[in-house]
Computed example of a mutant assay.
Amino acid sequence: MKAAVGDRLVIESLHLDGPRRTGVITALHHSDGSPPYVVRWLDEEHETLIFPGPDAHVEPRREHGEHRGKEAARPAAR
């Protein structure tokens, strides 16, 4: 799995009719776009560091109406 800042991380529910979680990736810890990611969840007002599992997928920023900029490749400051 590879992602960039601004992409959305979607985690599907493991239960039938369960809610899906969607968040915006706000920081990367690796310049190659591999996990973990810092994600701001759209349904809550906090960020978490996450190592996505097999129930997750990335929606590139351009798929939800935005455009990637050069800042997308910057890794998170430590």
Rank of each mutant, 00 (worst) to 15 (best):
H30R: 10
Y37F: 14
L42H: 10
R78C: 14
P52G: 01
I25H: 06
G69Y: 00
Y37H: 07
G53M: 01
R61Y: 06
L49G: 08
I11Y: 00
E63T: 07
L49Y: 08
D55Y: 07
H64A: 06
T26L: 03
A3E: 00
V39R: 06
V38C: 11
S34I: 06
L9M: 00
G33I: 03
G65L: 03
E47Q: 14
F51E: 11
P54I: 02
H46G: 09
D32M: 04
P36F: 02
G65Y: 03
D43Y: 11
F51T: 11
G53E: 05
I50F: 00
R21G: 03
R68L: 13
R21A: 12
E12K: 12
F51K: 09
P35Q: 05
E59C: 04
R40K: 12
D43H: 13
R40I: 07
D43I: 10
V10F: 01
H30E: 08
R78K: 15
P35N: 06
I11V: 13
S34Q: 08
R78M: 15
E66H: 13
V38M: 13
V10K: 05
R68D: 14
D55P: 00
V5G: 03
G65E: 01
A76P: 00
S13C: 01
P75Y: 07
A4M: 14
P54N: 07
S34R: 09
V38N: 12
L42V: 11
A77C: 14
H46R: 13
S34K: 09
P36A: 04
K70T: 15
V24K: 07
E66N: 10
E45F: 09
E71P: 01
A56P: 02
I11A: 01
T26V: 10
R20L: 06
T22A: 07
H30I: 04
Y37C: 08
A73Y: 15
L16H: 14
L9K: 00
A56G: 09
R74L: 14
K70H: 14
E59L: 11
R21L: 13
L14K: 12
D55G: 08
V5D: 02
L42N: 13
H67M: 08
F51M: 10
D32G: 04
H29T: 12
A77R: 15
L49S: 10
L14Q: 10
A4I: 06
W41F: 06
V5A: 03
T22W: 01
R74M: 13
E47V: 05
M1R: 13
S34L: 09
H15Y: 15
H67I: 09
P52V: 01
R40Y: 10
A72C: 15
H29A: 12
V10M: 05
R62N: 13
T48K: 07
P35D: 06
E59F: 01
H15M: 14
M1C: 01
K2E: 15
L49C: 10
R74Y: 08
D32C: 05
V10H: 05
G33Y: 07
G69F: 05
P36S: 06
L42M: 12
D7K: 01
E12M: 10
D17V: 07
D43G: 14
G23H: 00
P35W: 04
V10C: 03
L28A: 05
L42F: 08
R78Y: 15
A73T: 12
P52R: 00
G69T: 14
A72L: 04
H57I: 04
A27G: 09
E12C: 07
V38D: 14
I11M: 05
